[in-house]
């Protein structure tokens, strides 16, 4: 177990430090660390504490959330194509967040924004699970996902197009592709409570998901309450995806790629895949966020562009494999 988790944890730590040291302002590494940990109110301290630290923390947190949610959904549906971005959960969360902002609800009280995104994500998960059924056949799952993604995306665009604010329409790209640029500690505090709650709910699913690999009947015979498992999965996924999307937009493919890459390393055992996938997701999003700052730093490249460039070919590969198995 530690053979997989320890290297992953080291990788996350290294990428986290790199994320703190990379940015448009060229600061010497030692000055940066002094600015981060030492007192003082100078510009370096401000850059480190108010710009780079929240960015790195959010990348690690949201990446872990997406990896964890992907692994849990794939375990429950026993389908490697289940992923919060692909099946429309992230898109529904973005719709919730956009509606909260456009109606002014997000200004009404602090947690309104993540709560609205959580409600959107909850709607997305419920719809997918209702449409795909408990066994989650690959074709139905993907069709349901496409429909929900398209509907959530269209409603998001409609809400932004109807806004009287001249900047709102430009934000469609942010909500579809995600970005961590210029986020602050405020965003971290908004997302943190729901993320922690979601992690807690999802982390407890390991034993149930292990049993489920033997089939539903066997799992029930082993004393697994499938209705409860399903409820925890829905709530946990909605919490982590909703909170992450509310502050960083819909970031796709992390929950698809990471569990797929790590599954062979943990002997395809869901309970071991959950923590590994969380660490892997954090590493992937930290790396993607480093890449958007190193490639075309002045263009504000969106995170989802990079994760999709990595994820979409893998997605095609998985579909190809699924087709062969079905044939």
């Amino acid at each position: 177990m530690t053979r997989v988790l320890a290297p992953l944890a080291l990788l996350v730590a290294a990428l986290f430090v790199a994320s703190l040291l990379v940015g448009p302002a060229s600061l010497a590494p030692l000055d940066s660390l002094a600015g981060l940990f030492g007192g003082g109110e100078g510009p370096v301290a401000m850059v480190m504490r108010e710009i780079r630290l929240p960015r790195a923390l959010l990348a690690a947190m949201i990446g872990a959330s997406l990896g964890l949610a992907g692994a849990a959904m794939q375990g429950y549906l026993r389908n490697p194509l289940a992923e919060p971005g692909l099946i429309g959960v992230s898109g529904s969360a973005a719709l919730g967040a956009v509606l909260a902002i456009q109606t002014g609800l997000s200004a009404a009280f602090a947690l309104a924004l993540p709560l609205a995104a959580l409600a959107g994500a909850l709607g997305g998960v419920l719809l997918v699970l209702a449409l795909a059924g408990p066994r989650g056949g690959a074709l139905v799952l993907i069709l349901a996902g496409i429909a929900i993604s398209a509907m959530a995306g269209a409603l998001t665009q409609l809400a932004l197009n109807l806004s009287q604010n001249p900047f709102a329409v430009n934000e469609i790209v942010f909500w579809m592709m995600g970005s961590l640029a210029d986020r602050s500690m405020t965003h971290l505090w908004l997302a943190l409570p729901f993320t922690l709650l979601g992690w807690l709910l999802l982390a407890g699913l390991g034993r149930g998901l292990d049993a489920l690999t033997l089939g539903e009947d066997a799992a029930q015979a082993m004393g697994i309450d499938l209705a409860r498992l399903r409820l925890l999965l829905i709530l946990g996924t909605a919490c982590v995806v909703g909170a992450g999307t509310a502050v960083a937009g819909a970031i796709g493919f992390v929950g698809l790629v990471v569990p797929h890459l790590l599954r062979p390393l943990v002997g395809a055992q869901p309970s071991r895949l959950l923590p590994a996938s969380a660490l892997g997701g954090a590493a992937m999003l930290l790396a993607a966020d480093l890449a958007v700052r190193l490639i075309l730093p002045e263009r504000d490249l969106k995170l989802g562009v990079l994760t999709a460039l990595v994820g979409a070919p893998l997605f095609l590969h998985l579909i190809y494999k699924t087709r062969r198995e079905m044939a």
């Binding site: 940015g23 448009p24 302002a25 510009p43 370096v44 401000m46 850059v47 108010e50 710009i51 780079r52 902002i101 456009q102 002014g104 997000s106 200004a107 806004s163 009287q164 604010n165 001249p166 900047f167 709102a168 430009n170 934000e171 942010f174 210029d182 730093p297």
Partner: peptide
């Protein structure tokens, strides 16, 4: 980039006035 703005430490920051209807751009 916000980082460069912080490092430049200007004597005065002149911002736009937000339009009605919130936006995350503003």
């Amino acid at each position: 980039p916000l980082e460069l703005l912080a490092m430049a430490a200007p004597d005065v920051v002149i911002t736009g006035r937000p339009y009605p209807g919130a936006s995350r751009s503003e």
